[in-house]
Design a protein around this nucleic acid. Sequence first.
DNA 1: AACTTGACGGTCA
DNA 2: ATGACCGCCAAGT
Length: 119
Amino acid sequence: MYFHGAKIQNMGDDFFQRVYEVVRLIPPGRVTSYGAIARYLGTARSARMVGWAMNQSHTQPDVIPAHRVVNRNGMLTGKHFFGGENVMQELLEAEGLEIENDRILNFREQFWDPAVELA
DNA sequence: AACTTGACGGTCA
DNA sequence: ATGACCGCCAAGT
C-alpha cells in the first residue's frame, strides 16, 4: 500500500470491493458494525478485515460513507482516521444521530444490519 | 522468515 | 459491568 504517494492496494480478491458495496448501501442516519458486514459477507473473513478495508476506503474513486460503520457497541473507534478530532462525530450528527463520549445513543434503534436489510 | 499490530468480536471468569 | 484471552489475517518492521 502506499503512503506518501506511493502505489497502492489492489489485493488479490474483491473482498474489499464487496465491503465497500455494502457500506455504500447504509442509509444516511443509520449505522452498522464491522462484524455485521463480515457476517453478511460470510464467516470466511473476520471483522478485522472489514476494519482494514475501511482503513483503505479512502483509496476508492468514490466516497465511501465510512463514518456509518462503528464497532459492535456503537463506538466511533475509527474517528482517528477522519482527520480532525471530531469529524466522524460531526458527520453522524449532521445525519441526525446523537453521540456522547464517542458512542452513538440509541444504537440498537439506528443499527442497520445488512444480513437483514439485504436479505 | 519471524514477530508485532490493529477502524474487531465472542467467550469466560 | 470489566477485563483477560483468543481467533482472525493483511501489512508493516
